[in-house]
Structures are given as C-alpha cells and as structure tokens.
Design a protein around this nucleic acid. Sequence first.
DNA 1: TGAAAATGATTGTTTTTGATTGATATTGAC
DNA 2: GTCAATATCAATCAAAAACAATCATTTTCA
Lengths: 249, 249
Amino acid sequence: MNFQKRKQKILEQLNAHGEVDIKQLAAGLAISEITARRDLNQLASDGLLYRTHGGAMKVNPFEKPHDFINKAAKNPEAKDNICRVAAGQICDGDIIFMDCGSTVFRLCQFIKNKKIKVITNSLPVIYELQNCAVSLNIIGGEFDSERQAVHGSMAGEHISKYRASKAFLGVDGISVNGLFANTENEAAITTTFANNSDYTYLLCDASKIGKESYLRFADLDLIDAIITDADGGKLEGFEDKGMVILNVN
Amino acid sequence: MNFQKRKQKILEQLNAHGEVDIKQLAAGLAISEITARRDLNQLASDGLLYRTHGGAMKVNPFEKPHDFINKAAKNPEAKDNICRVAAGQICDGDIIFMDCGSTVFRLCQFIKNKKIKVITNSLPVIYELQNCAVSLNIIGGEFDSERQAVHGSMAGEHISKYRASKAFLGVDGISVNGLFANTENEAAITTTFANNSDYTYLLCDASKIGKESYLRFADLDLIDAIITDADGGKLEGFEDKGMVILNVN
DNA sequence: TGAAAATGATTGTTTTTGATTGATATTGAC
DNA sequence: GTCAATATCAATCAAAAACAATCATTTTCA
C-alpha cells in the first residue's frame, strides 16, 4: 500500500463521511499513526482536505459527485424515439443549435456520423460529440454546474452571432398558453436559440405537454414544430395555433 | 517473453486491478524485479501508467475516454511540483486564465477548493473543475477536438472581453529568442490570454526550455514569470531579460 | 560470427516507514 | 480563569524497502 493508493482511499473516505480520524485511518489502512499523519499533512498542503486535531475534514462539504452524463433519464425509450425522428430532420450541411435539455442530449447518439455543425451550450453534448464527424462550436460564458451548461448574458450575446438552420430545444413545460421554464437563465437561452434559427423543433416527451411551471417565458409561436410521443388528447389545440406536430408513435 | 508482450500483460493487469506491484509482476511474468521496474519506467515515460513506489497505478482511476490524460502523465511528478508552486501563487478572489496545456491541466487538482474564478478554453479543465468551489467561465468558439479546446477568432474575441489577474499558460517551447508554438491557433490564444491578464505565468517542465519549434509567435516579454523544474544551466539568459524564474526544486 | 539489444546481478543511494522523545494542543475538573 | 491529565503533534533517528547506476551475461538479429 503506497502513498498514492492511500491518498485515494483517504479522499474516498473523506467524501463519504465528511471527516476522517487518524486512529481509524491507521487501523483501516494498516499503517502507523505517524504515516497517517504524514499523509494528511501532505494532502492538506495540497489543499485537498482540512487538517484538524486527530484527523481531517472535507474542505468543501458541498461538493457534488462527478455524475457527468445524466443517467437518471426518465423513460429513455420514448426519448430515443423522439430523437430518432429529430435526427431524421437533419441533413448534411445543416447548422444546428442544441440546448441543454435531457432529451436533446439523447439526440447526440443519432447524429454522430452526420456532416453538420453543432452549436451548443451543453457540456454533456460537447463531450458526446467531441470525437466524431460533426464539427462543434461551443457557446461561451458563465458555466452553470447545476445544469452542466453555459448561460448568462455573455452566452446570449455569443449565440446571437451565429445563425442556425435548425434548433433542437427542450423546455420544462408547454401548453397552448406558451412555453415554461424553471429558471430565467434557461428561458433566455432557449429564446435566443430559437430567435437565431430558421426552424425550431421542440423535443418533449408526454410529461411536458400541458405542464405549466413557474415561468412562462414565450408564446407558442417561438417554435415551429413539436416532436413528441404524446398522443391526440394531450395535443388538442396546438395544431390550431399553427404548430407542426411530429408524433413518434 | 519480450517487452511488447509484457507491456500488453502489464496494461491488462493494470486495467483489471487498477494497480500493479513490482514483486507480483516479476513473479507472474517470470522476470527479475529489475526488468519489471524498467518496463514500468518505460510505460510511465510514455504516459501509459503512473509510476509509484513499488509498482504503478492506472493513469486516471476515473474513466476518461480521451487520451488527453495520457499526455498529462508524462513525468507527472515534475509537473505536479510545478503546479504546486503555481497554486501557491493563487489567492482567493483571483480571476485566472488557464489554457489547454497538459501541465496547466494538472493545476486543477490543486485549486479545487479555492474561491476563485477560472476562465478557460480547455475542455479537460472544465471537466475537472465543474463540481467544485471555483466558479467557471468557458471561452466560446470553434472546438478543436485534437487539442480538446476552443480556438479561432471568436474565441479570441471572447477572451478579450475578460480581464484576469493572473494567467497560467503552456507553450510548446521557449528560448531566450521567444515563445514557440505548434499551431497558429494555439499561438493566437496564448497571446490573447497573456495580453488580457495582469500577470502571466508560464508553466513548463525542463523539456520545453530551450526548445524552438516551428512557429515563433512572441517575445519573451509577453510573459512575466516562468515556473519550471529546470535548473541553472538551461535557464541562463532568461533572468537577464527581466524574467522572473520560479524554480520548483 | 559479431554487434547491438535485452536481461540480470551487484553495489551504494534514496525513499518510505515506524519508533522514540520532547513539545504543543485539547479537555475537563476545580 | 488555572491547572493537570491526556491526546496529538513535530522532529529526529534508524530500519527496511525500493531505487538508480554500473557492469557482466545472455539473447537477438543481421
């Protein structure tokens, strides 16, 4: 058991319990207390933990684990069906916007071999597409670690410099009354993407249709088409308003 | 059993268990410990594993799909020493630029708990810092998948909108004649970062000092200080030109 | 066969670890 | 608050393990 391995274990334990104790460490790792102390001191001098009497604590107790790709996707089959249809709308040569919705993210797997340019503010999308045929542009600005995406005024400004042929976006909710978001930042980005593309698709599974969350940020006419797995009943009224509905079933 | 075959086995075992032990390796492959050591050293210098006392570990225990990490693993001790010094130069409240050099990347681990703002064009840096105390800004523009970073004219424009207190940059080579890069894009980004920060540190290990690659893109006075593990001989002439040298040994 | 490369043995050096000792910090009783 | 008891710490030293360097031996390949 060398230092590197111990360092790993100590940081693991620290992450799990928020604190470690020298005696427990020494016992658990089969090392002397003095070595445990040395380890903690070194880690502390690198700023990786906070040394206390008899042990150590996490420096930043609020740090979240590194869950990069959102695997907690709800009903992935429906979303994949939506994305298959969406991918069918994309031609080689297209310049497309993709935002940071969880459904939009699943579109990546279907467009890896297309000769297109993707402009996005979503870190997972960037990661997914970075080594394939598509050419990537990244929206710059403040990074929101909660949503793993870039937002803010600089981002909006940046988006406005581009013009896309198609945009594929998500929302938190949509009803005949308009589009709904959870945060103002999200709303601003969505609006800007839509305003700078020739044709805007909304990707949303059935659970989003009819949902009105706290911020109504745009009229329905911001977007041109909805790609969804929802059926007839839920979609009543949308087509009357000139919306194109692409049903995936 | 030749080296190639052993190399394969070692990497296999490393992948399976995350670490290898010299004694076990020697016994398992029917070679002397000294040969095992030699093998591990060679693999380490190729960046394929991380050498430890008595064995070796996987380069990065967290699965990272891209080989960027590998470059970062070439003589990691020297680079880590450089980064420790660099981290020591950073104060809470600083706004810092970080570019896409492999040494610069290793700085991440030492600044995770600092209360600073990091502005970067490097995807690995973003990935590494996305869930910690630092606040992140991403430079937008064209994405270069080779270097896993953003570059191009839009990126330069974007950088110019920010002003940092300190910049931590890498280069391909540096001599008393100036700074050298491999590509014009890289050179442009480096220059822009340096021009928009109050104080610019160059992080470079000994192999970069004195090296002159094909594109000389700036005079020495673009940067303020060099942090390096190189010793006296190689550094002759730099201090005469007003350069601050922070030696890590 | 002979030169070059790879391997192994030997040597002394460096790194890592643990033990000891005296100093310092923490705790609880007063 | 003071004091003593206890725990933790830093510093120094010694032992063990791992290491690098050198040289001899074996293997490889032309």
